[in-house]
Every structure is written in structure tokens, then in C-alpha cells.
Design a binder for these strands. Structure first.
Length: 875
DNA sequence: TAGTTCACGC
DNA sequence: GACGTACGTGAACTAA
């Protein structure tokens, strides 16, 4: 077989890739463009060249033997950008995974290693291909050696054979060295002869063949000036040639035959691509997952009869439900893994066992779980109180990187380098086809989850420790999970009849509005269909389409509001939308999820979803019950206490985000405003418009409020312009003036963006972390988004930290004081309790106290509260 | 079944 | 090779 070796100049190709491609990021903020380009080239080489032998050479260290000849060699060269240097370890990892040899040697450059090996290889009868971004290497071309130099981009190359070099320059490969001796090379800081460029160098070499021959016959050179230059700088020419010549006698401790390209580690490659976010390349891999999907079985024992010997003091415990809503989902089974082995326990066998219950309820038996809240509720449904939970792998993974949003256990495990668990979808199917297979199949799946929790725990603990997030985990999120479990379990009482009444009324009104709309439009159509509505408004009635969407005309509220004066039907449509929303989402939607027996609603708070650390709420979402408009607000009349002897008690933080901002930005003026407990929007208006507090009119206050809103939610000038109905430029001016008024805030914004760029992430008061890869994007919009995220997340996230801390403190206080009041809901800056009338006075004192003291800031936290017979009345 | 549009909260 | 405008949940519609 013909032997063919490919020699790659690693540094040069990486450089080329880095500058040729936009600064890509993976989801952890590590730059990947050079790795990506390098990989693309490598894949192309492997496919097209099919080499039998392969080596990537790297430059080692800063100085080489050439520096002895010329101290200024490569002087003035810019430092390798850190965005590139951080990528080299990945390139090396990747080469390792591909089983490709890599080499570097102190004192020598990659060029010299390649030069030496190409010569050896030629002598051993190899065909040689050299890949680099540096044209210097073309001097190595020969009958057996082709030098491939990257042109534009990274995979576009130019092949230099002796014939090609002759055609291009009229020189032999060896003369390339002479050429550089004469003309120099600015990138390597090789001087050459001043005044001699490529043209002159080639002309001279065609005549004299080499630098030596030229220098010995300078008299024959045409042109007096040139002769002088050559005489004056002959030593420069000689030295430059020496510098430009690639050394072909590097002392190597191996031979070319040892560079055989053998086997690659597909699993490793897959993991690396995954980590780097090379999704397009992942797909092109020869399905290493499927190959690996002959998945390693976890060995486990099936337990039907409980005995104490199964339990160790520390174990991993996993409860499986295959439907999402754990308030109702059937339990598929349990798995337990610890010092004594791994066990699968069918659901019935466990929940009926006294031994199991005793273990579960024993606080001294520590349990590591996946989703503590779900596990607690699952067991509570069978009268078992799970105690002693000391780790939750799901929460831990969320704290380490909230942006990952893994969809199941397998994804969480994979994120942390454990790939022995199959995705739920593989075992249970998805959508309508989701079901429990034969026990044998899912038992092993469930067992495999319990079996790896311990391993994941160790990995995540280490990472959380590095991130200084252990306190956040153990003192905040984990205790909170148990509190949320209680809140969800407790549920909120709903006055079903009241809801139905409202539904009847709305139904009637909807029918009326519907008829009015049909009459005004002159035809019947589906008002709920944006498409049909668009046709009616813009085609039939000829109203001006103000905005377009991907699929057609926009009919959103802000568009309709602009159209309202033009045609009477529009206001009715807006009204129809509003009532329709109440009816479908809030009346019908809520009725669908009320427990028919107890008339209670049990939401699920997702504790590991938002990027900022806020909770979210689903099935139903109790964090978006209407309040702004009176009609919608009435929905809250249906949320009532469990018994007539109690009230709904709501306490909310006043301007918590802006107070947090005042604190972290350490802005004197903002702090002052809160210390005096000013109306913050009025104060902002006064500062921004340079007027006195009492000169602020309602319009100024409205605008200041919108700016504050923008600060809190990190909206863009575009967003602000939309909410104020002004131009983008005017909005930008507003923001500018705001920042001038609050120099501390301005400085904070600059600092946080700079830090985010350096570290790739931002943090909150309690060390919650959010990675922001977009922030180094070259795309203006994306980078803008990243910058706003960097400014906003510490504000919103810290506020989320604070209220979570307050929840824990409040619940502890209720227990300590042996109160019957219960925490029911959290709505971002608000806590809702159910309070026996006898405890109202106590709670009026206790709740604001606990919430205000949750953390100590440079400004006071302020809590307002109110209570009444329904949620509506707690206003 | 997946994607789009719209609307509610903070 | 550009990415889309604070983040969530959910309903209805539409196109596959």
C-alpha cells in the first residue's frame, strides 16, 4: 500500500481559522471558532487525503534557535489573543480523540518539525502533504511533497507543487528561501534588503539563482541604487535567508513510521462536539450514540419484600412517574442505590411496606434524589413523609448552569459527563405513544438513574464548591424545594360557583360582541384567527396594515389600538379579545384544573427553569392571574381561603428590583431616594428632567416609570420606545439621561458588562450564576441582548434570591411561633398566605418584618400588605 | 404534532 | 451565517 503522510502546522491553521471565522461561542461562553475551523479542515483532510500517517506540529515556547541568530525574530508580533489561546486545549483534546499524533519541541517551530519529517518521509517513500496557513512552508515542496496553503476561509486551499511554484513565481521551491532572504517577511520581523520587494526579488533570483551567487556578483545587477542597497545590506540578506530557511535536521525521538493514523474514539469526539456546541458536526458523526446505544445495562435486584438490610445511611433514591404532573401521575416505581447495591422496587411493594415508610421518614437516613419536590409529593400521596433529603441533582444542575434546561434525567446526567442513562423518550416513547413498557425494560431504566445519582452528586458538589454555590444550594434552593412542595400540596381553594357565574356572564357578553363584530364587518368569520381577522381588517375593510408578522398581517393589541379611530369594529375586537382571554384561559382554564373533590388548585412551581432564578408556575399558572384591568381582576374573587374563619393575606415588596439596583450599583442618589422612601418614579422623573419633586407632572412620571421598568427588565431602547410610543432615538436619549442622573448606576452597568465579557457569566447577591455567551458576539443585536442580560440578571436574580430567602424565613417563623397561617403562593415579589382571623394581627407584624429583614442592603426593603375574604380583596 | 400569534403577570 | 428586542405560561389556530 502507498504510504501517505499529512503534516499539519497546528498553530498556523488555528490562527487562520480564528481570524477567518466569527467569534463563535459554546453555551458556556468559551470561544470555539478556531476549534471549529480547525475541525472542519481536519475532517476535510481526513476525507480527501485519506492519509495513512498524520501529525500535527505545534510551536513550543517563545524563543527558538532563530532568536540566537536574530534577537528581533518575530519581534513586534501581537500577543496571541486570549480568545484564541483558550481554544488550543480543545484542539489538542480533539486531536487526541481522533487518535492523531501531535508534537512540539522546545527551541523549534512547527515549521522545522514539519520540514524534518517531510524529508524523512520522502526518504521512506511516502507521499507527503503539508497543511499550513503560512506560505513559508512552500519551500518544502518537491516531487513527493505538496504544500497546501489556506486561501480565503479555512477549507479553501491552494496546492503548491514545484510546478505550481514555477508557474506562479518562476522559481524552484528552494528559491523561496532566497526570495524571503531578499524581500524579508514583516510577520516574522525578518528584515530582508530594504527596498527589495517580491517583484525585485524574483527578478534577481531568475538572473542569479541564489542569494549567495547574487551577492558575489552585485556588479552585474542592473540599477545603481539597487547595487548600493545590496552592498550596504548584504549581511541582512544573508541573515534573512538563514532565518527563512526551515531546518530539516530537528532532533526527533521518533520516526515517521510511528505516526500511523489508526483509530479514533467516537464517544470522546461526540462528547467534545457536544461540549463545544458543534451541533452540525454532531449530526455528521457516524451515529456514535446509536452505536453506543447498545447501552450498558445497570445491574439491579428486583425487590418485592422489604428488609432493613437494603438501606444504608446514605443512599440515592429515585421515584419515577412518567407523566409530567406529579400531583396525579401514577408512580411507575422506585429505585434505591447505596452501599449494598442497586434495587428496583415496584410501586405497590414500596408504598405498602412499613419498613420502607420507616426508612423514608427517618431523617438520619440521608437521601440523594432527582427533583426533591416531585419526590416528596409523590410519596406524600401515599401518606409517606420523605425526610432526610440532602441532595437534589436536578437543582444542583440548574444552579451550575440554568441555561442548559435538560429535559430529563438522562440529559442532566449527560451534562455532567455520565451517559449511562437512556433518555426517557427511548424507554417510554413520547407524546400520545408515551406509556410504560414491560417492567423488565423500565425497571432497569429506573435503576440506572438511582445508580448514577451518587456519582453525579460528587461531580456537581465539586463544581458548586468551585462556584461558591454550596450555600445557595444547601441554605436556599434545597430548603425552598420542600417549602414549595408544601405550598403545592396545600393548594388554593377556589370558589367554583363564582368562576362558573363569571363564565356565564362572559359567555353572554362574548356572544353579543361577536354579533356586533359580524354586523360591523359585514360577514361572519373566526375572530380568534389572526389570519381571518387580518383578511377582514386589511383586505376587506381596507385598513392600513401597520405591522407584519412572518405569516401575514399583525393584529396585535398595539396595532389594533392605532386602528381603532379608523373603524368602529376595531374596539369591539379588542374587547372581544380581552373577554375571550378571560373566558378561555382563566375561567375555563382554571375550572379544568380544579380538583373536583376538594375544589382546590395545585399549581406546580418550576424551580429550575428561568434564567434569572425566578420561579415559574404551571398547570395552572398562578403567577399571571389578571390584576391590571378591573374586569380581569375579578377573577381573583374566586380565590378564597379554605374556611370562613380565614383570610387571604398578601404581602409584596415595594420596588425590590430598584432597591437591589441601588444596593449593587451603590448609587448615592438612588440610595438617598430610598432612604427617604420617596415615590421612586417621581424621584426618577425629577432627576432625569432636572426639576423639583413637586414639579413632576403625570406625563414625566409616566415616562420615568417606563425607564425604571426598562432598567428592571433589561429592555432595549427599542423596547422602551415601544412602551412609550416614542422613537428609538428618543428612547435612547431617555436612557442616556437616566444614566447621567445616576452615575453610580452607569458605572455599575459598565462594570457588569465588562466583567461578563471577561468571565462569561454574571452572578447575583447569593452567587446564582448566568452564562452570557452572546456578550462577545459580533452580531450587534445579539451582543446588545447579552449586554442587557448582564446588566439585568444580577438585579432580577438578586431580587429572586431575596424573596426565596424570605419564604424560608417566613415558614420557619410560622413553625416556630406555632401559627396556623400557611404560605400558599409566590408571585415574584409577593407572598400570599392563608391566615386564620385570629392570627391577622400577628401576621401584620410578622410577615413584613421577616420579608424586610431577609437580607441587609444599603437601602431598606419595604413591604406592603393587605388582606381580605378573597384574593381580590387583598389589594 | 409543532410552530405561530396573541395576551396575561412581574 | 445570521441570529431579534425582559421572561415566563397558555390558548387558539394553522399547516403538516
Amino acid at each position: 500500500m502507498n504510504k501517505k503522510i499529512v503534516l499539519i502546522d497546528g498553530n498556523s491553521v488555528a490562527y487562520r481559522a480564528f481570524f477567518a471565522l466569527p467569534l463563535l461561542n459554546n453555551n458556556k461562553g468559551v470561544h470555539t471558532n478556531a476549534v471549529y475551523g480547525f475541525t472542519m479542515m481536519l475532517l476535510k483532510v481526513l476525507e480527501e487525503e485519506k492519509p495513512t500517517h498524520l501529525l500535527v506540529a505545534f510551536d513550543a515556547g517563545k524563543t527558538t534557535f532563530r532568536h540566537k541568530t536574530y534577537g528581533e525574530y518575530k519581534g513586534g508580533r501581537q500577543k496571541t489573543p486570549p480568545e484564541l489561546s483558550e481554544q488550543f486545549p480543545y484542539i489538542r483534546e480533539l486531536l487526541k480523540a481522533y487518535g492523531i499524533a501531535q508534537y512540539e519541541l522546545e527551541n523549534y517551530e512547527a515549521d522545522d518539525i514539519i520540514g524534518t519529517l517531510s524529508q524523512q518521509a520522502e526518504e521512506h517513500g511516502f507521499e507527503v502533504k503539508i497543511y499550513s496557513g503560512d506560505k513559508d512552508l512552500t519551500q518544502l515542496a518537491s516531487d513527493a511533497t505538496t504544500v497546501c496553503i489556506t486561501k480565503k476561509g479555512i477549507t479553501d486551499i491552494e496546492e503548491y507543487t514545484p510546478a505550481h511554484i514555477d508557474e506562479k513565481y518562476g522559481l524552484t521551491p528552494a528559491q523561496i528561501i532566497d526570495m524571503k532572504g531578499l524581500m524579508g517577511d514583516s510577520s516574522d520581523n525578518i528584515p530582508g534588503v530594504p527596498g527589495v520587494g517580491e517583484k525585485t526579488a524574483i527578478k534577481l533570483l531568475k538572473q542569479f539563482d541564489s542569494v549567495e551567487k547574487l551577492l558575489s556578483s552585485i556588479d552585474e545587477v542592473s540599477g545603481k541604487k539597487l547595487q548600493e542597497k545590496l552592498r550596504e545590506h548584504r549581511h541582512l540578506a544573508e541573515m534573512s535567508k538563514e532565518l527563512a530557511a526551515i531546518l530539516r535536521e530537528v532532533p526527533l525521538d521518533f520516526t515517521v513510521d510511528s505516526l500511523e493514523y489508526k483509530e479514533r474514539d467516537n464517544e470522546k469526539i461526540y462528547e467534545l462536539f457536544k461540549e463545544l456546541g458543534f451541533n452540525s458536526l454532531l449530526e455528521k458523526l457516524d451515529h456514535p450514540v446509536e452505536e453506543a446505544a447498545i447501552h450498558e445495562k445497570t445491574s439491579y435486584e428486583l425487590v418485592t419484600e422489604w428488609n432493613e438490610e437494603l438501606f444504608t445511611d446514605d443512599s440515592s433514591f429515585y421515584l419515577e412517574m412518567i407523566a409530567e404532573n406529579y400531583h396525579h401521575a401514577p408512580i411507575a416505581g422506585f429505585a434505591l442505590s447505596g452501599g449494598n447495591g442497586t434495587y428496583f422496587i415496584p410501586a405497590e411493594a414500596a408504598v405498602q411496606s412499613a419498613v420502607f415508610k420507616e426508612w423514608a421518614e427517618d431523617e438520619t437516613k440521608r437521601k440523594s434524589v432527582y427533583d426533591a419536590k416531585r419526590t416528596v409529593i409523590g410519596l406524600r400521596r401515599y401518606g409517606i413523609e420523605l425526610k432526610g433529603i440532602d441532595f437534589d441533582i436536578w437543582l444542583a444542575s440548574y444552579l451550575l448552569n440554568p441555561s442548559e434546561s435538560p429535559e430529563d434525567f438522562a440529559a442532566v446526567a449527560k451534562l455532567h459527563g455520565v451517559s449511562s442513562v437512556q433518555p426517557d423518550e427511548v424507554v417510554y416513547g413520547k407524546g400520545a405513544k408515551r406509556k410504560l413498557p414491560e417492567q423488565e425494560q423500565y425497571a432497569e431504566h429506573i435503576a440506572s438513574k438511582a445508580a448514577v445519582i451518587e456519582k453525579l452528586k460528587a461531580i456537581c458538589l465539586k463544581e458548586m464548591e468551585e462556584n461558591q454555590q454550596l450555600e445557595l444550594f444547601y441554605e436556599l434552593e434545597l430548603p425552598l424545594a420542600l417549602i414549595l412542595a408544601d405550598m403545592e400540596w396545600e393548594g388554593v381553594q377556589v370558589d367554583v360557583n363564582r368562576l362558573k357565574e363569571m363564565g356565564e356572564e362572559l359567555k353572554g357578553r362574548l356572544a353579543d360582541i361577536e354579533q356586533t363584530i359580524y354586523a360591523l364587518a359585514g360577514t361572519e368569520f373566526n375572530i380568534n384567527s389572526p389570519k381571518q381577522l387580518g383578511t377582514i381588517l386589511f383586505d376587506k375593510l381596507g385598513l392600513p396594515p401597520i405591522k407584519k408578522t412572518k405569516t401575514g398581517y399583525s393584529t396585535s393589541a398595539d396595532v389594533l389600538e392605532k386602528l381603532a379611530p379608523s373603524h368602529e369594529v376595531v374596539e369591539h375586537i379588542l374587547n372581544y379579545r380581552q373577554i375571550g382571554k378571560l373566558q378561555s384561559t382563566y375561567i375555563e382554564g382554571l375550572l379544568k384544573v380544579v380538583d373536583p373533590e376538594t375544589h382546590k388548585i395545585h399549581t406546580r412551581f418550576n424551580q429550575a427553569l428561568t434564567q434569572t432564578g425566578r420561579l415559574s408556575s404551571a398547570e395552572p399558572n398562578l403567577q399571571n392571574i389578571p390584576i391590571r384591568l378591573e374586569e380581569g381582576r375579578k377573577i381573583r374573587q374566586a380565590f378564597v381561603p379554605e374556611d370562613d374563619d380565614s383570610v387571604i393575606f398578601a404581602a409584596d415588596y415595594s420596588q425590590i428590583e430598584l432597591r437591589v439596583l441601588a444596593h449593587i450599583a451603590d448609587d448615592e442618589k438612588l440610595i438617598e431616594a430610598f432612604l427617604h422612601d420617596l415615590d421612586i418614579h417621581t424621584a426618577t422623573a425629577a432627576d432625569v428632567f432636572h426639576v423639583k419633586q413637586d414639579e413632576v407632572d403625570s406625563n414625566m412620571r409616566r415616562q420615568a416609570k417606563a425607564v425604571n421598568f426598562g432598567i428592571v427588565y433589561g429592555i432595549s431602547d427599542y423596547g422602551l420606545s415601544q412602551s412609550l410610543g416614542i422613537t428609538r432615538k428618543e428612547a435612547a436619549t431617555f436612557i442616556e439621561r437616566y444614566l447621567q442622573s445616576y452615575p453610580g448606576v452607569k458605572e455599575y452597568m459598565d462594570t457588569v458588562v465588562r466583567e461578563a465579557k471577561e468571565k462569561g457569566f454574571v452572578t447575583t447577591l447569593l452567587q446564582r450564576r448566568r452564562y452570557i455567551p452572546e456578550i462577545t458576539s459580533r452580531n450587534f443585536n445579539l451582543r446588545g441582548f447579552g449586554e442587557r442580560t448582564a446588566m439585568n440578571t444580577p438585579i432580577q436574580g438578586s431580587a429572586a434570591d431575596i424573596i426565596k430567602k424570605a419564604m424560608i424565613a417566613a415558614v420557619e417563623k410560622l413553625e416556630k411561633e406555632k401559627l396556623k397561617s400557611k404560605l400558599l403562593l409566590q408571585v415574584h415579589d409577593e407572598l400570599i398566605f392563608e391566615v386564620p382571623k385570629s392570627e391577622i394581627e400577628t401576621m401584620k407584624r410578622l410577615v413584613p418584618e421577616v420579608m424586610e429583614q431577609a437580607v441587609k442592603l444599603k437601602v431598606p426593603l419595604k413591604v406592603d400588605y393587605s388582606y381580605g375574604p378573597t384574593w381580590y380583596d387583598a389589594k
